[in-house]
Amino acid sequence: MQTEIIPNISVDCVIFGFDKNSKSLNVLLIERFLKLEDSEVPAVNDYVLRGFHTFENETIDDTANRVLKELTGLEHLYKKQFKVFGDPNRLKNEKDIIWAQNEHFNRRTITIAYYVLLPTDAFQLENNPYKPKWFPVNQLPELGFDHQKIINEAYADLKEKVLYKPIVFELLADKFTIKELQDTFEAILGVEIDNRNFRRKLITKKYIIALDEKQTGVSKKPSQLYMFSKDVYQKIYKESYLINI
């Protein structure tokens, strides 16, 4: 028996990924393409966030987890529900209306938005049926629906929360250098951070553990590796800034 969807409730996921090679914060998007039978020119050709309607037997979190698993193959990702988007004019552009009609979507759809954090190399894009692509957060292509607004608000929330919650570590590998951690903060906040001051403050944090390991496979002098201890953090947790800029 096919599971029924709730036609006017959906979930959209803003997936942020940090690329340590380009030192950029990126958003994962999928192509939205539609060519009608009576036209050689695509009626719709842009990018959107990955989302889907909620099934009748699901919670909203279940829907988000399903969408993320289908797209990335990953489970137990960090995700934060940050806002509901229910403007009655969300689908106001002609291409959005055409798409909704073709997909039999309800034009009065309310979406619950999440943002997700992971390193860009956490999964492979090749052979992914959704053909996802990473774009720098400040260099996004043309977007469908109100997804530019959703991304903007997710990014604003991320920039605020990263200053007093340890969510930055979700964007890094389990083992990282202090420079990679600094690069991640700089990519999110869009500012340059004094290197020596940052290092001095961060290495005093008891939940940032120095490992008896260094980088491998690098041409320059390998740097010390560190890890974030969630257990230690929770024991000493205080609502205070990780860094002061």
Rank of each mutant, 00 (worst) to 15 (best):
N93V: 02
I110F: 13
L125G: 05
R90M: 10
I97A: 06
E75W: 00
V67K: 00
V84N: 07
R90L: 08
E126P: 00
Y78C: 03
N127C: 06
I98N: 12
K92E: 13
T109P: 08
H76D: 12
R90T: 13
V67M: 05
Q81C: 08
E103H: 13
K92N: 13
T72R: 02
K79A: 04
H104P: 01
A122W: 05
R108C: 01
V84W: 05
H104W: 10
D121I: 06
A113I: 05
K80H: 14
N128I: 06
R66P: 00
A122V: 03
R66S: 02
Q124R: 01
G86C: 08
Q81M: 11
L117K: 09
T109D: 13
R108V: 00
K80V: 02
Y78T: 06
E75R: 01
L91Q: 07
H104N: 15
Q101S: 02
L71I: 05
Y114W: 11
K83I: 05
P88F: 08
T72W: 04
R108M: 12
L74K: 12
F105P: 04
A122R: 14
N128K: 03
W99L: 15
E103N: 14
L71G: 02
K79E: 04
Y78K: 05
F105L: 15
I112P: 01
N102W: 14
E94R: 12
A100H: 09
L68S: 00
H76P: 01
P119H: 04
G73K: 03
L125F: 04
N106P: 11
P88Q: 05
P119I: 07
D121H: 14
Q124I: 05
Y78G: 05
